[in-house]
Design a protein around this nucleic acid. Structure first.
Lengths: 190, 190
DNA sequence: GTCTATAAACGGATAGAC
DNA sequence: GTCTATCCGTTTATAGAC
């Protein structure tokens, strides 16, 4: 088995299991059974569980950054918001998983310090991106944002994360559409 | 040690540990160390972990119902909403914990079926209550709700749950105030 | 790189004494 | 009710052969 493939497989399954069952809900044994290698081989790539966790979180963050940067900068603010929500809705429809950062944030007290920091960074980056887009929308006149921009951005991201949780809980991806109709159309779009 | 006291202690610590570290993040051993009894004594009250989990969830649900019913029915819709959000904000400020149902929903795939149902019931009950209050607000003319009432109720509860997660993540209870200013004042209150 | 073998602690759970 | 003692599988991790 090619090295990169094994390492990649480990990280893919680890991410999925965390999103499905939480940080404390999977083991090296689970991974070894899924991939078809021994647990000691996983330790070769990730000496301890925290190493694996950090690698998975950082890769998730990096991919999110790439997805965000791929959003056409020339779009209007409300178009950017629709693309942004749709990225999350599509990801949910394809995988039936909540956000990795939300899954980890739920187990906060059991996270290694470094991971906790990475989760905070992810949340902050999303909120900052949303605040920028809301600001653009106000400038353009295409969005109406009552009150503070940062407040609106934080509430919007909280609603997005919460909607992913309920979409999975009720096995109903329409919950993500709720978000578009309610939070965005209602509050922030004219 | 009085029986009811021991049983109560077990359930209190179990609920707290689930809210802090997730369902898979605590053990009978953790509980026994915290309370000062042996793990076999815990098995006397709750033969298996699922029994304990179900008891904790049902108690949490019952207390929520009591708190909701204690809200003065004669209040205006927007006053009810403010009391409702304040119940959650106060609970967070006092305990630094997210909602038990949200903590369990994050570990969904690892939950026993009965617990999954109880978590769904809790979410549904909150959404139904919110939808009723929004409906009252529209009737009174004190709330402006764009689009479907059920949609607005679901988004509002998702934002509430998500805000609790970030309030803890950033150790900042103002996140709950964000919700009042943004989601309620902005979207639903005139 | 992957394996076997092993370690030491932890996990939920039970039987039976007091 | 709570304890001691015990069961047996799990979990994370390491050492060393191949």
């Amino acid at each position: 088995m090619n090295t990169e493939t094994t390492r990649t497989q480990i990280m893919q399954h680890a991410q999925r299991l965390i999103q499905e069952r939480g940080y404390n809900g999977f083991s090296y044994r689970d991974l070894s059974a899924l991939i078809g290698i021994k647990t000691s081989s996983i330790h070769y790539y990730f000496p301890c569980k925290e190493d694996l966790l950090l690698a998975v979180v950082q890769q998730y963050y990096a991919r999110w950054q790439a997805a965000i940067q791929a959003i056409d900068a020339s779009l209007s603010a409300d178009a950017k918001l629709r693309v942004y929500v749709d990225i999350h809705r599509q990801a949910f429809c394809n995988t039936d998983r909540i956000c990795l950062a939300a899954a980890l944030a739920a187990d906060l007290a059991s996270l290694p310090t470094g991971v906790r920091q990475a989760v905070q960074d992810f949340y902050r980056a999303n909120e900052d991106w949303l605040a920028q887009v809301l600001e653009q929308g106000v400038r353009e006149g295409s969005l109406r944002v009552p009150g503070d921009l940062g407040t609106a951005a934080r509430s919007t991201f909280a609603a997005l994360q919460g909607s992913l949780v309920t979409a999975r809980l009720f096995n109903n991806s329409d919950r993500m559409k709720d978000l578009l109709q309610g939070a965005l159309s209602g509050r922030e779009l004219e």
